[in-house]
Design a protein around this nucleic acid. Structure first.
Lengths: 137, 137
DNA sequence: CTTGCACCTCTAGTGACTAGAGCAATTATA
DNA sequence: TATAATTGCTCTAGTCACTAGAGGTGCAAG
């Protein structure tokens, strides 16, 4: 049996975040002590660690809600799980592509700047005129 | 002289976003027609395009506010401008590094999944147990 | 018994918009 | 000129995933 603080230390999820997850229905309401404090069973730690890890991998809370529902039905096909994970992978790849283009553009902008006065600043100039860009972004 | 709709089409910034920029002081209040509609001078288009382009490159509105202030003082050194841009570049690089680690982890997870039932699903398993990860994230 | 930390609820704030309601003004068509 | 369609106006509230803070209560150690 765990207080919310111990659960927090165990999982690395902050206390207000745990309460927030309860509020949005991602965690079910735990029992309370006589004084009204939350008392968690050990198993909640697993669930919360799952959530945390999935968040770290960039899954949205909605995705996680779905994954948790699916993981509660062990006999079902895991195709739906893979589907969510694949979608997430595609999203990550898209973001990488985009960020790489941005990086190129930023570096080019900075490399070209002779760094004198603002009136001749290449950074300001490029920001004001998209046609000076080579990459799509 | 432009209505807000024409300014929007000219710059690719949505109408409510233009009003929002005015609200937070990124654009100054334009004159109004007799009926109370906003009338913009052509020059505002430049400023708005600047903002849009900087947003596309991932600058925050606070950064942009600073860049706009700096660009209004053409005789000053552009070191401060470069500083902001460099900070932004570092941020982008950090995000790419992180996302690349995530991608590796996601792909590994998906590759290992034999895709049968949820009970044997590698995706669910890895999400529940961080120690199964190789990459930092 | 008291000190001090951990916990409680509730509200509001973050960033950068977006959506919608309920109107008014302007422009195009008949 | 009348009407219809489009565009504009303000204001409020919602998005996501929390985070911060106020003002109070519970609980365990010394």
């Amino acid at each position: 049996m765990l207080t919310i603080g111990k659960l927090s230390r165990l999982t690395g999820v902050k206390v207000p975040t745990i309460r927030y997850y309860e509020q949005i229905g991602l965690l079910s309401c735990p029992e309370r002590s006589e004084g009204g404090q939350r008392i968690y069973e050990m198993a909640v730690g697993q669930r919360l660690s799952f959530i945390r890890h999935a968040r770290e991998l960039g899954f949205s809370l909605d995705d996680i809600r779905e994954l948790l529902t699916l993981s509660d039905e062990p006999d079902q096909s895991c195709a739906a799980v893979d589907e969510i994970a694949k979608r997430q992978l595609v999203e990550i790849e898209k973001r990488i592509t985009r960020l790489t283009a941005l990086k190129t553009e930023m570096r080019r902008m900075l490399d070209q700047c002779a760094c004198q006065t603002v009136s001749t600043c290449r950074v300001i100039e490029v920001l004001g005129d998209h046609t000076l860009c080579t990459d799509d972004h």
